[in-house]
Design a protein around this nucleic acid. Structure first.
Ligand SMILES: NC(=O)c1ccc[n+]([C@@H]2O[C@H](COP(=O)([O-])OP(=O)(O)OC[C@H]3O[C@@H](n4cnc5c(N)ncnc54)[C@H](O)[C@@H]3O)[C@@H](O)[C@H]2O)c1
Ligand SMILES: NC(=O)c1ccc[n+]([C@@H]2O[C@H](COP(=O)([O-])OP(=O)(O)OC[C@H]3O[C@@H](n4cnc5c(N)ncnc54)[C@H](O)[C@@H]3O)[C@@H](O)[C@H]2O)c1
Lengths: 205, 205
DNA sequence: TATATTTAGTGATTTTTTTCACTTAAAGCT
DNA sequence: AGCTTTAAGTGAAAAAAATCACTAAATATA
């Protein structure tokens, strides 16, 4: 079972949609419905699911609860993951307060910032620390995921500290590519690049 | 000159890095440096640039200012684009105040929210309106880009209104896939799916 | 019960994307 | 001036991804 990143990404979106269907009480879903919901084709969805060695039911589609459970097991999406947010500015505090992360199994257990002023003024139920405590807190609390929301020039340093302290996944909101070891999973959320891609496609299409 | 989305995305990231290099006063850059900065290989970078019918200089690499200018022209990344943000909650207000969008040519000229209370209390230099005014304001101000930061269940409706009012590009922060006409450029920024992808790859790698 | 219909499963094929491997141009060096 | 080195340019090859086209299973229908 060799999963490409693309398959992983699609299947994660399928998982999110299955949660929606489950909440709505829908029992079965076709590959075509899943495809529409995630922006893919039905054959791609079926191939993805079959790569994961999972199956549906002829003429009925996929059992929503069952598939969600099986995907959860295969990709460990049911497992709760401890995460932290570094950089508690405009974006970082928005992320800190986003309750849905908790619902989806991402427990934000710490926030860090370089500014003591800011830390004192932040109003949140989540523990916030000075960034100097990052290594200790991440190691002690066994935090697995680091979310980086510091200015670009500070991002690589934070990534390095997070990795050194045991983090195994990094989501980076700063607009620079970071270098992390190959065994650390890493994704960028670069809003400006995204806007540029849209603008460029508006220009050339 | 047929550009794939992948090429567009990479080249947009190259463009961002060229700005950094320009600010640093660096005159030439190799395909390898560019590749490292955006997380690609040197041959991919060279191919991308050559697809755009642009060239560098033997043994010197690419002229930073020149390539940036040429990319700007080809993809109209120099052109200023008017944008608006719909949904002025935690995330929307963070986006509203992000000055770097302006620097990068994305002029946020309006914000919209359904809650009059919120609109009255928001402290920003940008004009904010009730969402009922969206269609008028977007059309009148010739806004080309819509940034969606409303709750999931409201997102499709907003997308529809934006498109109807003339928007040609949509950046969606809500965790659902939206349906827009094919001639409207569209991208998702789904943080939860991103975290899931990272977690899944932590599990299977 | 037989037949039609729907939808998953899948090997083959096609398309897209990336990488390789070599050529060419320019600059620096002796 | 000639040799060496460096880095872009590029057609060909390889790899990856997506799609097609068909099979099979299950349900509904007549
Ligand atoms: N706000 C947005 O809408 C937006 C949009 C696109 C990109 N981004 C990116 O997201 C990141 C955060 O943006 P923001 O608007 O929240 O910025 P911000 O300036 O509001 O917040 C940054 C925070 O990081 C803290 N910080 C600085 N250096 C630090 C360090 N070494 N360790 C720990 N904390 C440190 C600062 O004290 C501050 O609180 C930036 O890289 C920005 O480019 C933000
Ligand atoms: N905050 C985060 O860190 C975060 C993380 C991941 C995803 N998101 C997504 O981004 C979106 C915004 O998140 P948020 O945390 O800012 O939410 P929020 O609840 O703080 O803000 C949503 C805003 O949208 C407004 N709104 C609701 N319906 C509207 C409508 N029909 N038209 C106009 N405005 C309307 C509300 O009044 C509110 O101000 C959501 O879809 C959320 O799932 C946010």
């Amino acid at each position: 079972m060799k999963l490409s990143n693309k398959t992983v990404e699609r299947v994660c979106r399928v998982f999110g949609y299955l949660k929606v269907l489950e909440d709505k009480g829908i029992a079965f879903v076709s590959s075509l419905d899943l495809a529409k919901a995630i922006g893919a084709t039905e054959s791609t969805v079926r191939k993805d699911i079959s790569i994961l060695e999972l199956t549906g039911f002829s003429r009925k589609g996929y059992d929503v609860m069952l598939l969600k459970k099986e995907l959860g097991v295969k990709l460990q999406l049911n497992k709760k993951r401890k995460a932290c947010i570094v950089g508690l500015g405009r974006l970082g505090t928005a992320l800190l307060d986003y309750e849905k992360f908790q619902e989806d199994g991402f427990e934000i257990v710490a926030g860090f910032d370089a500014s003591i002023n800011k830390i004192e003024r932040i109003n949140t139920v989540i523990d916030v620390f000075a960034v100097d405590d990052l290594e200790n807190v991440v190691a002690q609390r066994k935090i697995e995921l680091g979310i980086i929301a510091v200015p670009a020039q500070a991002a690589q340093g934070i990534a390095y500290k997070l990795v050194k302290s045991g983090v195994k996944g990094v989501l980076n909101f700063s607009p620079v590519k970071l270098i992390v070891p190959k065994n650390v999973m890493y994704l960028d959320m670069d809003f400006t690049s995204a806007l540029r891609s849209i603008a460029a496609r508006m220009a050339v299409c």
